[in-house]
Design a binder for these strands. Sequence first.
DNA 1: GAGCACAAAATTGTATACAAAATTATTTAC
DNA 2: GTAAATAATTTTGTATACAATTTTGTGCTC
Lengths: 232, 232
Amino acid sequence: MTRHMHLAPKQSATSDAIAQAISLAIHEHRIAPGTKLGEDELAEIYGVSRTVVRAALQTLSHIKLIDIRRNRGASVASPSTTEAHEVFEARELLEPRTARSAAKRATPADITRLERHINDEHAALAASDPGRALHLSGLFHTEIARIADQATIAGFIETLVARSSLIIALYWRRESALCEKHAHHALVQALADQNEDQAEQLMRSHLVDLHSALDLRERNARTLSLRDALSQ
Amino acid sequence: MTRHMHLAPKQSATSDAIAQAISLAIHEHRIAPGTKLGEDELAEIYGVSRTVVRAALQTLSHIKLIDIRRNRGASVASPSTTEAHEVFEARELLEPRTARSAAKRATPADITRLERHINDEHAALAASDPGRALHLSGLFHTEIARIADQATIAGFIETLVARSSLIIALYWRRESALCEKHAHHALVQALADQNEDQAEQLMRSHLVDLHSALDLRERNARTLSLRDALSQ
DNA sequence: GAGCACAAAATTGTATACAAAATTATTTAC
DNA sequence: GTAAATAATTTTGTATACAATTTTGTGCTC
């Protein structure tokens, strides 16, 4: 099954494009937390020198998608349970307010775009591509932040969503049903109705649901960080 | 008047240290918004190659202290009035809640540290070093975020405080009195009393005061961006 | 075989060389 | 003299070379 290529390897590429490509791979869970990202390897893959790979890695490190330790290189981040809680608490603080602002400003074109997003998400799920579905689900949130027209906060949310993808990769409980479908749809409806209160409330409860669908017990964390250590 | 040297130039230095040094200079308003930051020049100053200077600049660009435009190099950022509003709106969203958490957790040692901060701030003002006073005033806010023990949100606040320094350099109304003294002191008192409601409320009104002490009218913005264009 | 010392390999950190682009200076036309 | 065109200079972008560090592998002792 050939996916549309997002960045042709073996071709010269800019550091931003490389950061984007790696970021996407992490989002879609094609690269697991803890995976080592060697500079030579990446340089080979993208057909550039290590100089530009290093720039890309620094960008990713900044948004905490990867860890860079001096003289030790880069590896995909694997957030602790503490970090996981923090990320979702931050989202619960920022996003409901943002959804409210978005409800105030959403245009019909915005609503259409969000609905298309949801459709793509369903299509990805139907095509058994849960990684892509997850990525699109994240984009849904950043899209709402964009509609709210608060670039600064939107930037924060973007990094939080990115980190959430890692957290979900590590701590998601398979038992809990993926009921995002309804939540996202209801949210779009509230935005379309310009119902600020409801948008804020729906976003809040949606995030709380996500947060509580994670298994953030300490025991679990230890197991995972062990696996992590082994997979290095 | 020799200030204690924070980073000896002409000596080999790490990229983080260089980013820190430049950041401090910007915070203390020793470098004005719009100033060009040439790679060769910085490499010469810090006695390293452009490679490490570029890494430092990328870090600073990430927290929006500087602008990097492709093939055009780096210059100290000069936020628009829109960005200025956004930054303070974000702070008004994040910091009151953070102050509340800090009130819940503040230890006597924390209180002592904050009081020392305020003293340093006064000392700097007394020594006619308003740049340093401003920097310390910013550190006061990041310190509270640290006490709240939410590293993720603290990181956001840190970048917002950094950008605020630029905004103040550009838009501060000299007419408005610098009455931070009381605000910070009252806040420390609330934290010491573990009075969460009051801490939250004081932080909110302190930020609103700061925000409204800026002259963010369009006319003003145009003037400044012109000066900016000229100083390039 | 376990543990340690040392050697070899691989990987990252930094400086430098060269290419590409933008900026500045100079020439030329009017 | 002004303005456009072009040449010279400066500055940034990228690749490569070498140094420093970490990691891996080997042989030794017990």
